[in-house]
């Protein structure tokens, strides 16, 4: 078994430093994005999540000419954008689409400016591609610990808010009746979302960050009836997508005679396949529900 595994994965796979960094940072991003993505989709914030990813590219590009850590750049701008979204009323269904669009337009504009500065001041022409599409194998190992901390902070926020968030997602009015402040819950969720998206932007690139956020969670929501099951499935699918993508990209170096395909491409392809496979699984689940589970004892009327 072990020999077989080692043969498939090539011995050098786990020995390579960049691969280990990519596996760790990408894994963090996958887990946080999966958990927060479930709530994001249910709140109807998929566009907002994507916009935060795109906007955080401004931070990524600023980090090039400011010389700060890219994670700090992504995180800072994403947090600012999250607060502007809240200010423009992303919580109200009526305004959410337009508010997100405005923040996205302004943020991408800022990103254009910073990338322009990158090109003119530091002559790094590849900055646009790196920021937009990510380059997982070029991640600096010094990012591992900050990524883990951001991941833990994001997961901590969601697990503390788990029940109020769930109720607020199900119906804000019901949540308000129980004394939950939808405003605070929404704001903290947006901040956690900003953290998750910043991590994803760091690993698969800011334009593709929403793939990790939306894909696994959307696929998981189709096949599960319970919140914790949905979250567990999302985590599993997210990890499979990211780690599978990294492995395929690593292997593709051998397939295409030294011309490796990008990690982001494989990650997204796996995620898209998962979402499409969700439909037949959903049919199976429907069929299973019709044969209702027996009730526990002592619940008869």
């Amino acid at each position: 078994m072990l020999v077989w595994l080692a043969h498939i994965l090539h011995f050098s796979f786990f020995h390579s430093g960049p691969v280990r960094t990519a596996l760790l940072v990408g894994g963090c991003a996958a887990v946080v994005c999966a958990v927060i993505g479930v709530f994001t989709i249910l709140r109807g914030h998929a566009f907002a999540g994507h916009a935060l990813g795109d906007v955080s590219s401004a931070g990524g590009s600023a980090s090039f000419f400011l010389g700060i850590s890219p994670l700090a750049g992504f995180l800072g701008i994403a947090a600012i954008a999250a607060m502007s979204l809240e200010f423009l009323g992303v919580r109200r269904v009526r305004d959410q689409d337009v508010a997100t669009g405005i923040v996205l337009g302004a943020g991408l504009g800022l990103s254009a400016l910073f990338l322009y500065f990158d090109i003119t001041t530091t002559s790094t022409t590849g900055a646009a591609v790196t920021v937009m599409f990510g380059s997982m194998f070029a991640l600096s190992p010094s990012l591992i610990w900050p990524s883990i901390i951001v991941a833990i902070l994001g997961l901590g926020t969601v697990s503390v808010l788990y029940r109020p968030l769930l109720l607020s997602v199900a119906d804000p009015e019901l949540a308000a009746t129980r004394g939950i402040s939808n405003r605070w819950v929404g704001m903290l969720h947006l901040l956690a979302l900003a953290g998750a998206v910043a991590l994803a932007a760091l690993s698969v690139g800011s334009v593709l960050a929403s793939a990790l956020l939306i894909g696994p969670a959307a696929a998981a929501l189709r096949v599960s009836r319970r919140p914790c099951v949905a979250i567990s499935w999302a985590i599993i699918l997210g990890l499979v997508a990211v780690w599978g993508g990294i492995w395929l990209a690593y292997e593709s170096y051998y397939w295409f005679s030294g011309n490796a395909w990008p990690v982001s491409f494989f990650v997204v392809v796996i995620i898209f396949a998962m979402y499409l496979l969700g439909a037949p699984c959903q049919q199976l689940l429907r069929r299973r529900v019709r044969v209702a589970e027996p009730l526990p004892e002592g619940t008869e009327r």
Binding site: F47, A211, L213, G215, W261
Partner: peptide, 17 residues
């Protein structure tokens, strides 16, 4: 919104390639 997001990232991933 999920549909739009998935279309975006799928096309963009082929762009990355």
């Amino acid at each position: 919104d999920v549909a739009a997001g998935l279309v975006l990232v799928t096309l963009m991933a082929s762009g990355a390639l």
